[in-house]
Design a protein around this nucleic acid. Structure first.
Length: 671
DNA sequence: ATCGTCATTTGT
DNA sequence: CAAATGACGATC
C-alpha cells in the first residue's frame, strides 16, 4: 500500500511553470509520420532552463527520447493530457530558430525528416566543453581589405555588395593559377567587416586548411573557425559552440559545415560544387550547394558557388537568372592559362633512346622534359586505383601496350556493360585488335594498376628524376618546388610553390568514356583543377591531355571555357530530361515494396515513372537484389513531388510496413 | 515501449 | 449482459 502523503507530494512536485507553461518539442524519432512538434508541459522547476533551442528528454509513447525545445508558448492545440518535460539536458540553446527553419526546409526539399537533418546539423554534446566560456573575437576594421576581385567582370560589384550588405548571388569561375583560398578569404573578411558572418564549404580538409590560413592572414584568428569531420568530439563541439554563440563569424569547413549556425549570416560559399564530397551520403542526402542556396534565400544572405570548372547545376542558377556569373574576360583568361594540347591528333612517338620501356606520347614527353629542364615540377594525373584496370596478356601476363606510344591499355571499369575496345591509358588510341607482342595471344586479362605502378614506369622514362605519389591513403598537401614528377589521383594533387611547369592528364579517354551522365562534366572538372596548378603559358606552362583534341570536353580545356561547356551540358540534360533540367527522385528497395510505393504516390500529373529496374546492392551481409524506380517532373513540380514522397513514406511507417525503401531526390548517379 | 480505444470472447 | 481479453493505432 502506497502512502497517500507520498503520492500527493509527487504530484505537487510537478507544478506547471507560471510563464509560458507549454513547450513545443521536436522529438528525435526516425519515423516520418511523427515529423512534427509535440506539446509538453513545463514544470516550474524547469521554467528557467527550458529555453527555446535547448536539448530535452521527454517521455514519448512510453520511452524516454531526446528532443529539441522549439518554443515556449501559452496554449496548446492538443486535446487531452500533456506530459511534462522529463528533463532539460542543458540550457544551451543549440537549435536556433534559423537552424530549425533551415532543417525544416532541407527536410521538405529532400522528402526527409527534420530529425534526420538535425542529426547532420547538430554535433553531439560534450558537457565539459559546454561549461567553458566562448570568448568573442574582434571584427576586422570597417574599410575591409584590398582585393583582387576586379580581375573578374562583376567582381568589384560582388565585393561592393558584400561590404554594403546587399544580397548578391554569384557563380564564379576562378582563373587558372588563381589563389582561390585568398579570394574566398577576401570575401569573408569583407562580410565580417560589414558586421555579418560567412560560411565557406570546401570539399576536403586540405582545402579547409588552405582557406583557413588565408582567412587568418586577413582577420584575427579567433574570428575564424575551421570545422572538419576529423576533429574529435570535444574540439568539434567547442568550435561549433563558438559559432553558435556568435563568438566567431567566419566558418571554413567541409560538408557538415553547410549547417554552421552563424549569427547574422551574410555570405554562403561553396567551392568546387562538382566534387562528390559535397553530396551528403546520409539521409536525406542533401547537397551542400542546394542547402546553401536555401539558406541564402531564407536569410537574405549572399551566395557564391566557385570553382575552376562549372557544373550544370551552377549553370542553371545562372540561366534561370537567380545568380550572376563572375568570370574573367577572355584576354585575362589567356594571360593566366597554360598551353593545353591533346594527343589524339598529330601523333608522333618520342624518339628518346632512354625511354624504351614506357614511352609517353611525344607531346607529353616533350612537355615534361621541358619543364624538368627548367627546374620545374611536373604533375601527372592518373585515376584512382582500380578505377580503370589495366590489361595484360592472358597467356604470358605481359602488360598490354599501345602500339603507337607503348602506354598501358585499359578498359573503363565502372558500369560499362556494352563491349568496348581497350584503349591506351595515356594517349587514348583505341586498340580493337590486340595481339601480345611477346607471345602473340589475342586474349586479355584485367589487372589493377594504381598510381604506384604508373610512377615506376614514368621514373624509367625520366631516369634520375625524383618521383612522388599522392593519392589514396597517402595524400600530400604540398611538395617542395624543383624538378620532380608528382603522380597524383584526382583531388589529391599537391600544391607547389610557383606552380607546376607541366601537367600530364592521363586516362582522359577512359574518364570520358564512362557511361555516366556526368562523365564529361566531371572529367573537365578534374582536368581544370589540375591544369589550374600549372604556370601560365608565357612562363612555359604546358598541359597535355591524353584524349583526342576533337572532343568537345578537350576543346573546353584547351580554350579554358568552363562556362561554355556547362552551357552545352545543361542543354543536353534539358534535351534528355535529366537533372538539373528536371527534378528526379529515386525510390529503391525490395521489388514489391518499390512497386507498391510507386503505385501509392500521389504524383503530380506531369510525373514520369522510369523503371523499376533491378539494381545490385553490395552488402557486408550478403549482396541484396533491389529494384529502383526513377520519377521525374519538370522543375516547377519539384516541391509537389517531394511532398508526395514524404506523404507516402509517412503512410508506410504509420502502417508499419516491414520493408524499408530509400527515397533520394536528385541523386548524383542516375544512369 | 506504453497507453487508450474498440471489438471480441468469456463468465455469470 | 458485464467483465476480461486481445488487436490496433497513436504516440503530447
Amino acid at each position: 500500500m502506497i502512502s497517500p502523503a507520498i503520492t500527493v507530494i509527487g504530484v505537487n512536485e510537478r507544478r506547471p511553470a507560471e510563464q509560458r507553461p507549454i513547450a513545443r518539442v521536436l522529438v528525435d524519432v526516425p519515423l516520418p509520420h511523427l515529423d512534427r512538434p509535440f506539446d509538453y508541459r513545463v514544470q516550474a522547476a524547469h521554467a528557467a532552463d527550458a529555453v527555446p533551442g535547448c536539448r530535452v528528454k521527454v517521455r514519448f509513447a512510453g520511452q524516454l527520447v531526446q528532443g529539441y525545445l522549439l518554443d515556449r508558448v501559452d496554449t496548446t492545440e492538443h486535446v487531452g493530457r500533456l506530459a511534462y518535460l522529463e528533463r532539460v539536458i542543458s540550457p544551451e540553446p543549440v537549435l536556433s530558430p534559423e537552424l530549425a527553419a533551415v532543417a525544416r526546409a532541407v527536410a521538405d526539399r529532400y522528402a526527409g525528416t527534420v530529425a534526420d537533418v538535425l542529426r547532420l546539423a547538430v554535433p553531439p554534446r560534450h558537457a565539459r566543453v559546454e561549461a567553458e566560456a566562448s570568448e568573442p573575437a574582434a571584427r576586422p576594421q570597417a574599410p575591409g581589405v584590398p582585393t583582387q576581385w576586379q580581375r573578374y567582370e562583376r567582381g568589384a560589384a560582388l565585393v561592393k555588395a558584400l561590404s554594403s550588405g546587399v544580397q548578391a548571388k554569384a557563380v564564379w569561375q576562378a582563373l587558372p593559377n588563381e589563389d582561390w583560398p585568398r579570394r574566398l578569404a577576401e570575401l569573408a573578411a569583407t562580410v565580417a567587416a560589414a558586421g555579418r558572418s560567412a560560411v565557406i564549404v570546401v570539399p576536403d580538409h586540405r582545402d579547409v586548411a588552405r582557406v583557413h590560413a588565408a582567412c587568418v592572414a586577413l582577420m584575427s584568428d579567433d574570428a575564424v573557425v575551421a570545422l572538419s569531420a576529423d576533429l574529435g568530439p570535444a574540439r568539434r563541439y567547442r568550435r561549433w559552440l563558438r559559432v553558435r554563440r556568435g563568438a566567431a563569424h567566419v566558418v571554413v569547413g567541409t560538408r557538415a559545415a553547410m549547417f554552421a549556425p552563424v549569427h547574422r549570416p551574410g555570405l554562403f560559399v561553396v567551392w568546387d560544387d562538382g566534387d562528390d564530397l559535397h553530396a551528403e551520403p546520409r539521409a536525406p542526402y542533401p547537397h551542400v550547394r542546394d542547402v546553401l542556396v536555401l539558406r541564402a534565400h531564407q536569410d537574405g544572405a549572399s551566395f557564391v558557388a566557385g570553382g575552376f570548372a562549372r557544373t550544370a547545376e551552377a549553370q542553371l542558377l545562372v540561366e534561370s537568372g537567380w545568380a550572376h556569373e563572375v568570370i574573367a574576360r577572355r584576354s585575362v583568361v589567356r594571360e593566366h592559362a597554360p598551353r593545353v594540347s591533346g594527343t589524339g591528333d598529330d601523333f608522333e612517338q618520342a624518339r628518346d633512346p632512354a625511354a624504351n620501356t614506357a614511352r609517353l606520347p611525344a607531346v607529353a614527353f616533350e612537355a615534361a622534359r621541358a619543364a624538368l629542364d627548367a627546374e620545374a615540377p611536373v604533375l601527372v594525373q592518373v585515376p584512382r586505383r582500380g578505377y580503370v584496370p589495366a590489361l595484360a596478356c592472358a597467356q604470358c601476363r605481359t602488360p598490354a601496350r599501345c602500339r603507337r606510344c607503348a602506354g598501358p591499355l585499359g578498359l573503363p571499369a565502372k558500369g560499362s556493360h556494352e563491349a568496348r575496345p581497350p584503349a591506351c591509358r595515356w594517349c587514348g588510341a583505341v586498340e580493337p585488335t590486340f595481339r601480345c607482342a611477346a607471345c602473340g595471344s589475342a586474349r586479355l586479362r584485367a589487372q589493377v594498376v594504381g598510381a604506384g605502378r604508373t610512377a615506376e614506369e614514368l621514373g624509367r622514362a625520366f631516369p634520375g628524376t625524383t618521383v612522388r605519389t599522392s593519392g589514396g591513403d597517402e595524400v600530400l598537401a604540398t611538395v617542395p618546388s624543383g624538378p620532380q614528377l608528382v603522380v597524383a589521383t584526382p583531388g589529391a594533387e599537391p600544391v607547389v610553390e610557383g606552380g607546376y611547369g607541366a601537367a600530364l592528364l592521363l586516362d582522359g579517354w577512359a574518364l570520358l568514356g564512362r557511361p555516366d551522365l556526368r562523365a564529361a562534366e566531371e572529367t573537365l572538372r578534374r582536368w581544370m583543377t589540375a591544369a589550374a596548378m600549372v604556370r601560365p603559358a608565357d612562363q612555359g606552362g604546358r598541359v597535355v591531355v591524353g584524349a583526342d583534341t576533337a572532343l568537345r570536353t578537350v576543346q573546353a580545356l584547351i580554350r579554358w571555357d568552363p562556362a561554355g561547356h556547362a552551357q552545352r551540358e545543361l542543354a543536353e540534360r534539358e534535351e534528355l530530361g535529366f537533372p538539373p533540367a528536371r527534378r528526379m527522385a529515386s525510390v529503391q528497395g525490395v521489388a514489391h515494396a518499390v512497386a507498391k510505393t510507386v503505385a501509392e504516390i500521389d504524383l503530380p500529373a506531369s510525373a514520369e515513372v522510369l523503371g523499376p529496374v533491378p539494381v545490385h546492392v553490395p552488402r557486408a551481409t550478403g549482396d541484396e537484389e533491389h529494384e529502383r524506380a526513377l520519377i521525374r517532373v519538370p522543375r516547377g513540380d519539384g516541391k509537389a513531388l517531394a511532398a508526395a514522397l514524404a506523404r507516402v513514406q509517412a503512410q508506410r511507417t504509420a502502417r508499419k510496413e516491414p520493408d524499408s525503401i530509400r527515397v533520394q531526390l536528385d541523386p548524383l548517379e542516375v544512369i
